[in-house]
């Protein structure tokens, strides 16, 4: 669901974002905070990478970020 909030938020939402997008919060063992604002704040370092390329660019050479990794790119896996 592409709400304005999803686009602005750094949260990654299943069904919206590419499944290959990664960020720090996914790889640390942290008790999920019931408040998503808190959770996302803690781990939104703003650093995103693609699991396939292991860089901050997707297989198509374009940047990896929640706002542009949501379909419409040849490499997206939704």
């Amino acid at each position: 669901m592409e709400t304005e909030e999803n686009l602005r938020s750094t949260r990654i939402v299943f069904g919206v974002h590419c499944l290959k997008i990664r960020h720090k919060g996914m790889y640390v063992s942290y008790e999920p905070d019931p408040d998503p604002a808190v959770y996302n704040e803690l781990f939104d370092s703003g650093s995103y990478w693609c699991a396939q390329t292991q860089t901050s660019f997707g297989p198509d050479g374009q940047p990896v970020r929640p706002d542009i990794c949501q379909g419409g790119r040849t490499c997206c896996a939704l």
Binding site: T10, N40, E41, D44, S45, G46, S47, Y48, S56, F57, Q62, P63, V64, R65
Partner: peptide, 8 residues
Amino acid sequence: GAGQGVGN
């Protein structure tokens, strides 16, 4: 840097 922001 390239295509990445400062984050929260």
